[in-house]
């Protein structure tokens, strides 16, 4: 299966070695849960969830090669553009809808988060924190757009159209009535960060729901 994931096409998610968020996500998923993974790539997360959590469900992916890779991983994958919404899914039909390191590459951020929390009872979102000190330093001292393990692109070829920080995301949640149930912030080695997360955290993972009126 590594042959497929090693294709030369541009990938939104960074390499698997950097996927410390997968472990955090897997810990949150209840055994036997029904999950929808938005932008599932080669299906690694879904496969992990099936093997470690007996969870099943579907991935959504747009890229032809990753569809094949997901099928080779024996996960259910549906070829679709996230930007056109989740109209093919009934409300509250999943225990979790996962958006793992994909939100920064989505154009219609508000629509997609609303759709996630309609289709899923809970949403799980992970993203590279643009407030991470190494990135701040690259702009501040180097005067160049940052490139890192979690943001491995140059400004001219990045699929990431919305770069944001932990502080940005949390104020977004407040403004949109999204309730944060749990948060994990990690450094580049996948170690949990408690102190100054917006400065020291490379990746953040959130568990969310639509809140209660």
């Amino acid at each position: 299966m590594s042959a497929e994931s090693a294709n030369g096409t541009m990938t939104v998610r960074p390499g698997r070695a950097a996927r410390h968020d997968f472990a955090a996500i897997a810990r949150w998923i209840r055994s036997g849960a029904h999950v929808l993974d938005l932008g599932c790539g080669d299906g690694t997360l879904l496969r992990t969830l099936r093997e470690t959590r007996a969870a099943n469900g579907y991935g959504i992916e747009i890229d032809d090669a990753k569809i094949v890779a997901s099928v080779r991983n024996r996960v259910n994958v549906i070829q679709s553009n996230l930007e056109s919404g989740l109209s093919g899914f009934e409300s509250h039909s999943f225990d979790y809808v996962i958006l793992s390191q994909t939100l920064q590459a989505v154009r219609h951020t508000e629509d997609l988060l609303r759709e996630m929390l309609r289709v899923g009872r809970e949403g799980i979102v992970s993203f590279p924190n643009f407030g991470y000190w190494r990135l701040r330093t690259q702009i501040l001292l180097g005067g160049r757009m940052p490139v890192s393990k979690n943001l491995p692109y140059e400004w001219y070829n990045t699929p990431n159209v919305h770069l944001f920080t932990i502080a940005d995301f949390e104020s977004f949640c407040v403004a949109h009535g999204i309730r944060i149930l749990e948060r994990i912030v990690m450094n580049e080695r996948g170690e949990r960060i408690g102190f100054l997360p917006n400065l020291l955290g490379a990746v953040a993972v959130y568990r969310l729901d639509a809140g209660r009126a």
Binding site: Y58, I67, S70, N76, V77, I78, Q79, G88, F89, E90
Partner: peptide
Amino acid sequence: REIVKALVDNRLDVSYAEI
């Protein structure tokens, strides 16, 4: 996609490719 939705609604295993 109508077929896929009917299968997803039943939580059946399905993959869908739009070539």
